[in-house]
């Protein structure tokens, strides 16, 4: 789950970078915020996976 979370973090960042490099004006801003939303999901997943690991130990 932690690995998936980190993949989501990278995917969200890739969306932000692509939005900046490839899009114009309004779509750029919308996709940048969407990418940041994906990052938030990834961060939640990474954080939630940590106490689970502690419980398994």
């Amino acid at each position: 789950m932690k690995f998936l979370g980190f993949m989501l973090l990278l995917a969200g960042w890739a969306i932000v970078v692509c939005a900046m490099a490839l899009l114009q004006a309004v779509p750029r801003v919308a996709f940048a915020y969407a990418g940041m939303g994906v990052e938030v999901l990834g961060l939640v997943l990474v954080i939630r996976s940590h106490p689970l690991l502690r419980g398994e130990e």
């Binding site: 973090l9 990418g35 961060l43």
Partner: peptide, 17 residues
Amino acid sequence: WLAQLVGVATLIGFVFP
């Protein structure tokens, strides 16, 4: 604001992983 936000997104989305 957006440029700063992109910087923060880079730190969390790229530097952290």
